[in-house]
Amino acid sequence: MEKLMGLLKVKVVRGVNLAKRDARGSDPYVVLKMGSQKVKTSVKKKDVNPEWNEELTLSISDPTVPIKLEILDKDTFTKDDLMGEAEFTIHDLAEVAQMNLNSMPHDTIVKTLHPTKQNSFVSDSHITVKNGKVFQDLHLRLKNVDSGDIYLQLQWIKITPSAH
C-alpha cells in the first residue's frame, strides 16, 4: 500500500464559454482522474457558463502523477460528448504543503506559477497560505476544443498520522 501523503480538495468553481455540443444547449459536468481515482461534479443543465462550486476530493500518495480533467456534455441516448480537457500537476502545491507554514501571515503568496507551453494556465497561479492551510487557484484553458476555460481552487489537506 502506497503511503498517503495528503488529500486534495478540488473546488470546481466554474466553466466559462464552454464549447456547445448540442443545438438545444450543453449539459456539462466535470470529471477528474488521477491514477485509478475518478470523481465528478453534478450536471448543469443547458449552460455553457456553469457555476458548480462543488468540492471533489482525491487521495494523494504521489504528487507527481498528473490530474486529468474532462468536461463532458451529458447525453441521454448517446455517448457523452467531450467539451474540453486539461491536465495539471500538484507537485508544487505538495512541496509548499510540506513546509512549516504556521508562522506565515494570512494570505501569504508562497509560490507563483506562470503560464507556459507545458501547462494550460491562462494566468499566473498563486499558491497561498490562509490560516495555516495551503491553497492554489487555477484558471485553465481547455484543450482539444474551440473555446472554454475552467476555474478551480485546490486545497491541500494534511494527513496527521494516527497514534496506535
Rank of each mutant, 00 (worst) to 15 (best):
E87Q: 15
V65H: 01
K117P: 05
L82Q: 15
G84S: 10
N17R: 14
V31I: 14
M104T: 05
G84L: 02
K9V: 08
W156Y: 11
V13I: 15
L72Y: 13
S103A: 06
D92P: 07
M5K: 10
D81F: 14
R141V: 12
V12M: 05
V12E: 02
G25R: 03
L69T: 02
Q118A: 08
I67C: 09
L58M: 09
E55A: 11
T108C: 06
L82D: 14
K143E: 14
V48R: 11
V30C: 12
M99Y: 13
V30Y: 00
E55T: 14
S42M: 02
W52Y: 13
T64C: 05
Q155F: 02
E87Y: 04
N144W: 10
G132N: 04
L154K: 12
D80I: 02
L69D: 01
D73A: 04
V31G: 07
S42N: 10
M104W: 08
I150H: 05
I127S: 02
H164T: 06
H164K: 11
N53F: 02
H91R: 13
D92V: 06
T160Q: 09
Q153L: 05
V65L: 08
K33F: 00
N144P: 12
L138P: 00
D124R: 09
Q153A: 06
K117A: 14
V43A: 02
K9Q: 07
L138S: 00
S26I: 00
D81Y: 11
D92N: 13
V39H: 03
S147D: 15
D22C: 03
E54V: 06
L93C: 00
L56R: 02
V48Y: 05
R21V: 10
V39W: 04
P28L: 06
L69I: 09
T116C: 13
G6E: 04
L18R: 07
L113K: 12
V145M: 05
Q136C: 03
K74Q: 10
K3G: 04
V43I: 14
T116G: 13
K38G: 07
M99D: 08
R141E: 12
I157R: 07
I109Q: 12
V16A: 13
H164W: 09
K40I: 09
K79D: 15
N17V: 07
V129W: 02
L82T: 15
H126R: 10
V96K: 02
L69F: 00
E85Y: 06
V96Q: 03
